[in-house]
């Protein structure tokens, strides 16, 4: 069976997936945190190889996605939408749309049952409503990133935050802190604001009702809850490995391409 690797180089983390046939063998991610990116990629790749207990020579195809052009040992590169759609179908087969929320961008993707991308919408270059923005807010509030979601769930009087501009939103947050608003209510307000933007993206991209959330913010339970509250007619699905959807999708597409290229060679 084909063994393949997928490497998703994001703006804040590198995610690696190892697959064999239809199964995921290993998943590993490394935060970048001002480290030399090539070293982070190589470290994450080596650790994932070890976790999967495979040698580099066992790999039929190393596929990249995201900013993966920096991976010199790649065989092929796939665009982020393609890989997130494929990863979402693997993790959550009932879904027909993807909401990929990363550190810098969010994308709404409509797809068919084979993960073929039918339509998509992306946020602009503005950082508002991105993972990076949420990280900044966590820093202002002096809380760990992992606490953001659970704390937001405790909010019972969410404060309205600008949904247009990260700079204005950050100013809002500073004002709220000085007004003594509870961090839980601040975070809940931010999540509601972000969820509103994502739902608009989804509606503009198409009308699928089962939506897989992928990307780094898929693990933010507060955001997922805000999405569900914000939009009752859409069903939002998450998976424990949703943050690896890009890497998993890249690995599966790499394995597919390997089979295509081998059959071409044989014929």
């Amino acid at each position: 069976m084909t063994i393949a690797a997928g490497i998703d180089v994001g703006s804040s983390a590198v995610k690696v997936a190892m697959i064999i046939g239809d199964e995921v063998l290993a998943l590993h991610s490394e935060r970048i945190r001002r480290r030399e990116l090539r070293k982070v990629i190589n470290d994450a790749y080596s650790i994932a190889l070890g976790m999967a207990n495979v040698k580099e020579s066992d790999l039929a195809y190393v596929a990249t996605t995201g900013e993966g052009e920096l991976v010199e040992f790649r065989r092929g590169h796939f665009y982020g939408m393609t890989t997130h759609a494929r990863g979402a179908i693997h993790l959550l087969p009932e879904t027909r749309a993807v909401l990929d929320i990363g550190a810098l961008h969010a994308r709404a993707i409509q797809m068919d049952d084979r993960s073929r991308v039918l339509n998509y919408r992306m946020t602009s270059q503005c950082a508002s409503g991105s993972g990076q923005f949420l990280e900044n807010v966590a820093r202002y509030l002096g809380i760990a990133l992992e606490e953001v979601g659970p704390l937001s769930l405790q909010g019972d009087a969410p404060e309205t935050v600008s949904s247009i501009c990260a700079v204005l939103a950050e100013t809002d947050v500073i004002n709220m802190v000085s007004r003594g608003i509870k961090p839980a209510d601040i975070l809940k307000g931010i999540h509601i604001s972000m969820a509103g933007r994502y739902v608009k993206l989804l509606r503009a991209s198409g009308n699928a009702t089962d939506v897989a959330i992928t990307g780094g913010l898929a693990s933010d339970v507060g955001l997922v809850e805000a999405l569900r509250e914000n939009c009752a007619d859409l069903r939002f699905h998450t998976h424990p490995d949703s943050t690896y959807a890009g890497a998993i999708g890249a690995a599966f597409w790499g394995a597919y391409r390997h089979r295509v290229l081998e059959s071409r060679k044989a014929s």
Partner: peptide
């Protein structure tokens, strides 16, 4: 996306 659509 063009490259992906051709290959896949």
């Amino acid at each position: 996306t063009f490259s992906d659509s051709i290959r896949l």
